[in-house]
Amino acid sequence: MEYHNLIIKFFAGEISDSELVHLKSWLEKDPENRRIFDAENELWQEAGSQSNIGAYDNDSAWINISGGAGLGADNPKPVVIMGKAKFRILVAAATIFALVTFGSVTLWLTSEKSLRQLSGGITRITTNEGEKSRISLPDSSQILLNAGSTFQYDRKFNLSDRMVKLMGEAYFDISTNPQKPFVVELDKMTVTATGTRFNVFSFSNENRVETTLEEGIIHVSVKGGEPVEVKAGQQVVYFVKSGEVLIRDVNPDTYTSWKENMLRFHDTPFEEVLRRIGRKYNVTFEVSNRELFDLTYTATFIDESIEDVMQMLKTVSPITYRIYYRTSASDKQYRKPKIVVGKRKSNI
């Protein structure tokens, strides 16, 4: 028992030189003594790991690991998986967009529920913000329609070809049929495939139109131009404002993660972050300070509540916010929650 005490003093940094000599010779004497030392050490570490809060920080360690392992991104910048408050903010060159764009998505949303219309042989499926819809087409292709999107096809579908239209975001898993090409018409882009899997992002209020190919080959033409062949793992981006077209290698998972209820941002400008949060959680945003639009974010949220998401944004960037939950307006209609975002005074 005397040696237990000596060992504890050793761990606590209280052992004297003469005691240390004792401890050493005791340890040398018998392997059993070393085993006792080990057991005490384990107990000491165990008690320390439990009581010594903050000695080992999971969050900052995870940032290092996910960065070191190149997780989640198609470039070596660390992408942070959100569990608690942790984030990476990149301040990029300012690109200020008008706030007006937030409202425009509602223009082609008509009812409370997703809606399938049959008029003039046209089938249209619309999802509201905060919801997704799975569509099985007559040719057994599968479409997953993201929030705030509209998908349509007509009765000629699958006769000589397979033409569909999309506004918004959808993931396509197209059944193979080289005789009948599958054509997705977007506002600014046309995607042609015979059988493959790809993701399309084309909102009227976003500056980018993106098509990301997970498997197979597709042909993409921008604004009626020459079709370009795109291979698996590549992405075509069309920047609406500048008219630039970019084909790049990406990790498709980053762009299809919404299927698994993840929200992924990669050097994403603040206003796009808000629009995407708005679509996913069915909330509207009001931003009181334009300086905030200079912020960009790289982060992944997995199944977090809107409250948690906002809290994290606040933790990592100089913002304040207030959530106004569903309020009934004078006409007895319920409005969607509104989040007012402002700039925090102190710097982070």
Partner: peptide, 21 residues
């Protein structure tokens, strides 16, 4: 990656304590 993060969060502190011994 999610599975990996789960595993990490479950064992990180215990592994650190273990290495610290």
């Amino acid at each position: 990656e999610q599975a990996f993060e789960l595993f990490f969060r479950k064992y990180n502190v215990r592994l650190c304590a273990f290495a610290n011994k």
